[in-house]
Amino acid sequence: MNTREIKIYDPTLCCPTGLCGVNIDPELMRIAVVLETLKKKGIIVERFNLRDNPQVYVTNKVINDFLMKEGAEKLPVTTVDGKIEITAAYPTNAQIAEWYGMSEDELTIKK
């Protein structure tokens, strides 16, 4: 299995699914579910919430530089092996599947 290290840096969220927000954001739900599915396969995608882990956004130089330059509007940011790959959006299922060398179907297993 591919061992690429993927990290997602969220903006300040109430919770990972955004259900506590004004409305239900399908994107947030999709990504939360995909990450949960990966976790069940033993793949941990680290995910940070600016509200809970602001220190991470300060100490990680790549993220901090990006933030100070672009502002919070460009969150969420996804890094692959420490390099910023996606900004202002979550990775698509296709992208995640490609990074891990699996098929998209594996990310949305329905029981």
Partner: peptide
């Protein structure tokens, strides 16, 4: 952190 982030944190 950028001011927009601070403001956002306050809001949340």
């Amino acid at each position: 952190l950028p001011q927009s982030v601070i403001t956002n944190m306050e809001e949340q």
